[in-house]
Structures are given as C-alpha cells and as structure tokens.
Nucleic acid binder design. Structure first.
Lengths: 342, 342
DNA sequence: CTGTTAGCGCATTCAA
DNA sequence: TTGAATGCGCTAACAG
C-alpha cells in the first residue's frame, strides 16, 4: 500500500497536522522539522492523496468542458479544438486543469453526476435542456458556449442568426438560386431524448430571412435544401457526392462547419468540378486550415479561441462567487475565393 | 448547503447504506423503498458527491493525458488532437473520462501530484526524466507515447529513426543537397530542468544516417542545417521566411511536424516561390489537412489515432492489473507532390 | 432486505 | 510550534 500521512507522522514522531503543514504551510513549522518530514516522505515515496485532499478542501482545481459529442468526435473537430485552446489559455494562467466531459453510454446524465470539477463550461447545450437542470441541482457553477440567449444563463456566443443571414445574402447576391445547406445532425443528450440544435436553428432562421428577400425558401421541392450531416470531413464528402450526382446540382453549398467543406472539396475534385467556377462552397467558423485550402474557403469567422477564453474567465469568476454576465462576440465574413458569382 | 446522504437517510427514515444502495445497487433493496428514497432525493436535489465517492471507492474513473506543452499549445497541434482522438475512442467505449494534464506554472511536478486519475498516458516524455519517477512514486499506472524504447516501460510509438532515414533518403535521392530541418524546441518539464526531445533526437539520427550515405552532414557551414522551431503554423512561417531570405536558400525544407508546413507554404507564397518547382517541402505526421493542401504535402504517415488507442487500451489493462507490453506501430511514406526532383 | 460500523486520507480549528 | 479531535460525504463488510 501507498504510504499515508499517518505513516509519515508516525515515523517522524510528529502529528498529522505537522506533516500536513510541511506540505501546505511550510512557514508554520520550524525548518528543521520540515526537512526531516520531507526527507522521510520522499524516502517512503509519500505524496498527499489528491482525492482526499479535494474532499477535505472542497475544491478540485479543475474545470470541465461538457460536450454533447463523444470524445472521439470532439477531437475530430478543429473548431472545438479552438474553443478548448481558448479555455486552456486561461487554465494555463491560473493553475486549474481541464476535464473533458462527454456522454457515457451515449448519455450525459451520468457524466454530470460523476464530474469531479469546480465548474463547467458547456458547448452547444441550451436552456430548457434537462442537462442544465442537473447542473443546477448539483449547484455547479456553469457557463454555456453557443447555448443561446437566455436570462439567468451566462452564455458566450455570437449572433448566429445575423451571421447566417449575412452569409446567405452574399451567396444570393452573387446570383446563386440553387443552394444546399449542410446542417449539423441533432444529438441525443439523455434518456429523456434531449436534443441540441440551438445555433443550427438560429442559423437556419438567418438563412431563411435572406432567402425570403429573394422570394426563395427551404423546402423539398424548392431550390434551397437542407442536408443533415455531421461535422466531419467524411460526412461532408458523402453529402456532397449525393448532391453532385443530382440531375440539377446546386450552384452553391453552405456548410455549417468548415470541416465539412474539406470533404466537399474532395467530392468536387472527384467529380471533376472546379471551385468556384462550377460550384461555390462556403463554410462557417473559419478553422485554421480554411485559408490554406485552395481555393481559400469563404466562411464566417468566429473566434473559437475567444469564446473559450471568455467562458473560462466567466466560470472562474462564478467559482469565486463573483458576478458574471453573458458575452456576445463579433463575427466577420471572410469572402474568399471559394465563393464565386454565377 | 447541498443535501448529503445523511439528510436523505434521515428524511426517508432509513440508513445511509440504504440510500447508497438506492443509487448504486438498486436491486439490493425493495422497489418501494427505492422509489421513496429517490423521490426524496430529487425533491431535495441530492446527487452523490463524486469526490467522496471516489475517495471511498478508491478509483476516479478517469485517465489523464500528461503533456509537456501548455494546454493552449496542445490544442494547437492537430497531431496531438489525433492522439487524443484515439484515446477518446477507448474512453467512449469504457465509461472513463479524460483529463488534460499540463504544466502548472510551467512545471509538471505539481500537476502530477494533484492529478486525480486512475492512470496516465504521457506524450513525448521519456525514460530518465524525473517526471516518470514521480509517477512511479505515486504508484500510478502509466503508458508512454513517443517515450522511446526502454525495458520496464510500456511505450507506444514508431521507429522514428528508420522513418526519418527513409524520408531523408527520398529527399536526397531527388538530388537535393541543401536541406533545412525544422526541429521541435525542447521543453522544460520541472524545476530540475528536464527536457524532452526523444523522438526529435531519434529522427535527427535517422536523418544523419541518410545524409552520411551522401557524404553530407549537419553543421553550421554545411548545407544541411537544423532550425529550432515550435510546432505551430506561425513558427514554421517565421523560420521559413528567414531561410528564404538567405542568399543561397535551401532547396528542401523538412518539417518535423506537418503543422509547420502550413506556415512554410504561406512563406513561400509570400516570397512568390512555387512548391515543388522552386522549393520542396516535406512534413512528418500526416495530419488530416496534409493531403488537402495544394500541392498535397509529402510526409511520413504515422497514425496518432492508433497511438492513442493502443496507449489507452494498455493503461486500461494496467489499471486492471493486467500485463501490458510496448507497441511499435508502422509508418509509411506519403510521397505527395510537395516533394520534387531538382 | 436493512441498519451498524468502520474506514477512505487529508485539512483545520482549538488548545496546549 | 505542535497535537488531538473533528469533519468532508460516501462505500462496503458485516451483522441482523
């Protein structure tokens, strides 16, 4: 068995308190006893148990990032990586570590109950979802990213509707009338069948507004259609393949995640189509590689790093019982070459 | 204050055990008492405290990934993301969660001591480093990724030396004689000034072997030079800029991380150089976007996903007291267009 | 099926 | 400066 604080105390002929002080409040004891204790500790390979420590101090020194996707999917998505990078930037500077909280057995409930963290940042989970109730039940400080606007909810995000509307406007103003939108598939969150689709819905609204101005609308028989896809290269490729095989293929594809665009590019290459001459492609997020593609990908730039950074600061404040308020960040259109005129 | 198991027990007129069973061993008590307890629990918003649970059960249900880089840097590197994806793949299937363990205050020592995890996977940390000793001191099961070969160390990696040698051979066989290698900067691990550079050194050895066959060698005045860089786009760009400004610029740049190549591409674009006509660029890792660049990046393909997956399985075995042995994975050369002949 | 009891390993208040 | 005692919240062996 591993040595415990008792073993050290006994061997050093002091009490547990003294040993504890040696590690946590060195100034409170004489340098001599401290040295003796530390020597014995290192001899016996003693290291204070983090869990017991956590229980006694009632704080873990970790924050969790709650994601509706599997861990496997999470690290597949460069945009989420950007968010994590922003969160990490704050963690690095404040001695807290990061826990990835993903569904266990496809369900988030258990994950939340078992999470040993001081606070949580959710990504893509909105109000009205049982998950957030559970968080409240645990009296867990939390901040949402892309969780939608809502009073008494601290959220970090952009105006997705406005961003989508602006993007679609650019597409339509270039005479495209036959467009396809790659939505992100909804995800099951708990046994009660929760879904997440907040930003998706907001963006759809935005697209709709712009379409409306041009007398267009989404629909089975219209020329604006929605494809349900995942935020992966493969899914983008697959969906694009289907579209490109249609007798009358769309002239523009809008991906709700840049990462899908990589797949679309490949599908176009396979089909011998040139971007943007034969077909236009636009994305959303502006992941790092977007501008390195050829042609560079037109997209909506929203800083995942900033989102993460703000969220991490806010949850840190919340943990310290300081007040925190929602943040709405800016977005910008990056109209690169992949979007052309008809 | 949050309700505890005692509050529930008291209010339900049962003992703590019964409440505990209601949550963990529902079959051990009558359905009736269970329902009553759960009703009271949800009424009082009771959720078993994960930390106390962990202390009592002596297992956290989490594994940690120990990285010598800051969290911020970690999520900047697509290759590490691939490793994490592999680890995540195993986690998703076995109900364990993932903790990112990065240096605190630039030092890993504290991180290791405070890590509340059942096992650890290190990335880029090798034998002879104090970090591993500390891990042993904590009796913590661990597996290294890219930690080098060593008896009594469970490691997952590839034959870096052979991979580097093969890569350099391809470059030299295409008549390049003036090559630059972008090494990865060493990193400080602890107060005692630990460094990590295992895979780097192995690869340098491999490069050297190939160079040797052509009568070349690294050196200040030779035509094979080493640049110390970080694994980021920016660092790659910066280093490339300097090289391209030289009176006699190299004809080939070898990046030890694909991500740097993105920066090199950009620097070449700025300088009006075409790849591979004016200069060749090769990488290492084969990150997802490598094949989407234009021209596609020549590189050494090693599967980060597989590394992560194997390491996670091994550490899981170790935690379960099962035996585990090192794994050496394959690599393959992806000789894409960015590598040309002189 | 349920209750009693004893830890799990450490932090910390209060006395000495 | 040090020590004894108490609590953190839960699990699990054992007894009934």
């Amino acid at each position: 068995m591993r040595a415990t604080i008792n073993d050290i105390a006994k061997k050093a002929g002091v009490s547990k308190t003294t040993v504890s002080f040696a590690f946590n409040n060195p100034d409170k004891i004489s340098g001599e006893t401290r040295d003796r204790i530390m020597a014995i500790a290192s001899e016996l390979g003693y290291v204070p148990d983090p869990v017991a420590r956590t229980l006694a101090m009632r704080q873990t020194g970790a924050i969790g990032v709650l994601l509706p996707q599997s861990v496997h999917e999470v690290f597949h998505n460069p945009y989420i990586a950007e968010i994590l990078r922003g969160i990490g930037y704050v963690c690095d500077g404040s001695d807290v570590s990061l826990s990835i909280l993903s569904p266990q057995n496809g369900v988030l409930t258990k994950t939340i109950r078992n999470a040993a963290v001081d606070g949580i940042i959710t990504v893509g989970i909105g109000p009205g979802m049982s998950v957030l109730e559970l968080l409240g039940q645990r009296r867990m400080p939390f901040v949402t990213i892309d969780g939608g606007k809502h009073t008494n909810l601290v959220n970090v995000g952009i105006d997705d509707e406005a961003a989508a509307e602006a993007l679609m406007e650019e597409v339509l103003s270039r005479s495209h009338r036959d467009v396809a939108v790659f939505m992100l598939k909804r995800v099951t969150l708990s046994e009660t069948g929760d879904h997440f689709s907040l930003t998706n819905d907001m963006r759809l609204n935005g697209f709709g507004k712009a379409l409306d101005r041009y007398g267009l609308s989404f629909g089975q028989y219209s020329t604006a259609r929605v494809c349900h896809t995942e935020a992966t290269i493969e899914s983008g490729k697959e969906a694009a393949r289907e579209l490109l095989a249609l007798p009358r293929r769309p002239t523009a594809i809008l991906c709700l995640a840049d990462i899908q665009a990589l797949g679309v590019y490949e599908a176009c290459r396979e089909a011998g189509l040139s971007i943007p001459k034969d077909i236009s492609v636009v994305g959303f997020d502006d992941i790092p590689s977007a501008s390195y593609l050829s042609p560079p990908l037109a997209t909506v730039r929203q800083s995942g790093f900033d989102k993460g950074m703000h969220a991490a600061r806010l949850v840190t404040d919340l943990i310290a019982k300081k007040p925190a308020e929602s943040v709405c960040l800016d977005f910008t259109l990056e109209l690169r070459e992949s979007l052309g005129s008809l």
